[in-house]
């Protein structure tokens, strides 16, 4: 009996035990990451629209460039994150004499990305709710002569009360669902790299905890 995707969320140990008995396949993990990337791109589009509105007057076509950058950056960035996270976990696991291919690590990290899709959906809904409330400063062409003006405009944009609230909510959502993914990744790494539970927890936990600490620090520094 093949395991269902729901098992990833609630019974990751059993799920990976079943899945890794079969041959390596990145098809489903890639689809999960792609889905997460598309949702992230939608969120990027909403945020990029605000930035484009702010900078549209600086030069012709600026708004299009910003929108494209935001959408493509979010989509491609998701896949880059997949690769980087897998790489970090793989490298750390080397110190624990882990065995198993990098593709296996990619596969389990891809599966572990599933909670991120849920987190991204909630973030998208929050963005749709909050973004219209944000007062976007519009930069005039003359602002190009004075970088301080652009800096101040960005600060004004980031410190808009609605923007602050949205950032806090999305950060907390990111922490919760990142830790959920980390939970899955630990079991995944255990099976993919033949690690003990403790070693797998360190491989995944250290970078994830550092990431979460950084996010919490950023929240406090706003």
């Amino acid at each position: 009996m093949s395991p269902s995707l729901i098992d990833i969320l609630f019974q990751p140990d059993a799920f990976f035990e079943q899945v890794l008995k079969e041959g390596e396949s990145l098809k489903i993990p890639a689809l999960i990451v792609l889905t997460g990337g598309i949702i992230a791109a939608a969120y990027g589009y909403l945020m990029g629209e605000l930035s484009a509105r702010m900078m549209a007057a600086l030069m012709p076509g600026m708004d299009v460039i910003i929108l494209l950058s935001a959408v493509l950056g979010a989509l491609v960035g998701t896949f880059i994150f997949w690769g980087v996270a897998s790489g970090v976990f793989y490298i750390i696991s080397i110190f624990f004499k882990g065995s198993g291919s990098f593709n296996r690590v990619l596969e389990v990290v891809g599966y572990g990305y599933l909670p991120q899709i849920l987190g991204s959906l909630i973030t998208l809904v929050a963005a749709i709710w909050y973004l219209p409330q944000i007062a976007v400063p519009v930069l005039a062409k003359s602002a190009l002569d004075d970088p301080a003006v652009i800096e101040a405009a960005m600060a004004a944009f980031m410190h808009d009360p609605a923007m602050v609230e949205l950032t806090q909510i999305t950060s907390l959502i990111a922490i919760v669902f990142m830790l959920w993914s980390a939970n899955i990744w630990i079991f995944g790494m255990k099976h993919a790299r033949m690690l003990t539970m403790r070693d797998a927890a360190i491989c995944v936990g250290v970078p994830v905890v550092l990431y979460v600490v950084y996010v919490v620090y950023s929240l406090g520094a706003m």
Partner: peptide, 29 residues
């Protein structure tokens, strides 16, 4: 440009929430 710093002060609630979630995760594991 007038920069509105929002309600001001340290965002205690979200930071505390983040730390609590992290502590629960570490403690649980």
């Amino acid at each position: 440009i007038k920069v509105d710093t929002g309600s001001g002060g340290f965002p205690v609630v979200p930071v505390a929430a983040g730390i609590i979630v992290l502590v629960i995760f570490i403690g649980g594991w």
